[in-house]
C-alpha cells in the first residue's frame, strides 16, 4: 500500500531485459528436463527385444549431465542479481515509454 500502482514500463534496459530472460530460462529448464526424461516412454523399451538398458541408460545420464550443466550456467548468472527484484522495473531511458 505504500506505492501506487504504476504501469509497467514498455521497454527495459538491456541488462534488465537479459535478467528477465535468464529467469525465463530458469523457469523453462525443468520443463525441458521433464520432456527429455519422458522421451523413453515413446521409445517403448518394454515392447522391443532390443537390449535397451545400456543405450537408454547412457541417454538418461547424458541428458542428466546436460541439465546439470545448464542449471549451473543459469544459476550462476541469476545468483548475483537475485536480490534486485525491483531493479528490473526501471525503464530504458533511451527508448522512452
Amino acid at each position: 500500500m505504500s506505492q501506487s500502482p504504476r504501469t509497467p514500463p514498455l521497454f527495459l534496459r538491456r541488462a534488465s531485459y537479459r535478467q528477465r530472460r535468464r529467469r525465463d530460462a530458469a523457469r523453462l529448464l525443468p520443463v525441458v528436463g521433464l520432456f527429455l526424461m519422458l522421451l523413453p516412454v515413446l521409445w517403448a523399451p518394454q515392447d522391443t527385444f532390443r537390449r535397451d538398458t545400456a543405450p537408454d541408460g547412457i541417454y538418461l545420464f547424458v541428458i542428466w549431465a546436460v541439465l546439470i550443466a545448464l542449471a549451473m550456467l543459469v544459476s550462476r548468472s541469476l545468483n548475483t542479481a537475485d536480490e534486485a527484484d525491483d531493479a528490473d522495473a526501471s525503464p530504458d531511458p533511451g527508448q522512452g515509454t
Partner: peptide, 16 residues
C-alpha cells in the same frame, strides 16, 4: 550389461 538379465528393462510408462 547387454549380456545380463537386466539388458532389456521394462519401462512401464505409468510407473515411470
Amino acid at each position: 550389461i547387454d549380456a545380463s538379465d537386466i539388458a532389456d528393462w521394462n519401462l512401464q510408462p505409468g510407473r515411470w
